[in-house]
Nucleic acid binder design. Structure first.
Length: 189
DNA sequence: AGGAAGATCTACT
DNA sequence: GTAGATCTTCCTA
């Protein structure tokens, strides 16, 4: 399994968000390795983004370098972001949904018996299922020994749909949400 | 110290 | 589809 290099994250967040679709999220949990295919992402543009208070907080945390995680709690849920930018700007990609590929029993246990696509079809759900918390804030996802990494996925072909983002009052005009067409794990069509 | 608001989730109608 | 739950952070006094 090939882990994406740091240079992968040195690009425009919208581009990175699109290219992250189909990649593998690798969560090391003790002796187990939880694999999830990324099926839904959103790009965030930090300071120029109307996402109010979240942006402010993000601006601080995005002083992190490209390729590091940025984890944030909202509405009793953890959200997983990967910092991605060309320059030193507070920008990044939000991982909204993944398709679990193995260790379903562990995911079910963490999700109190939920099943199938209910396991990870939302930002708060996938972090719960994979036991991702604030302790993973600032992890370098390109480092081989990190508990959380992102690796090359299969080379299968899929169609990418773009849409406006979810849950923001005054969204930007650009469509910054991307997901794989037909995936059962996409949170909302 | 207290209140308000949020990149959500769940349950119910 | 809509309302309520529930927690962390930020803002104001």
């Amino acid at each position: 399994m090939k882990i994406l290099s740091k240079s992968f994250y040195l690009k425009d967040p919208a581009v990175a968000a699109k290219e992250l679709l189909g990649k593998l999220l690798v969560r090391k949990l003790g002796n187990e390795e939880l694999l999830g295919k990324i099926v839904e992402t959103e790009a965030y543009y930090g300071l120029s983004d109307p996402a109010s208070r979240v942006t402010k907080k993000a601006a601080e945390s995005f002083s992190l370098k490209a390729g590091q995680t940025f984890i944030y709690m909202v509405h009793n849920s953890w959200l997983l972001n990967i910092v991605a930018n060309k320059k030193d700007k507070p920008q990044g990609v939000l991982i909204r949904a993944v398709e679990p590929l193995n260790n379903l029993e562990i995911l079910k246990k963490n999700r109190k018996g939920k099943d199938c696509f209910l396991l990870t079809n939302g930002p708060g759900k996938l972090t719960q299922a994979m036991k991702i918390t604030k302790e993973h804030h600032g992890i370098m996802v390109y480092a081989k020994d990190s508990d959380l990494t992102i690796a090359e996925g299969t080379k299968e072909h899929f169609i990418i749909i773009s849409n406006h983002r979810i849950g923001i009052r005054n969204d930007l005009k650009r469509k910054l949400r991307f997901y794989i067409e037909g995936s059962k794990w996409v949170s909302k069509i």
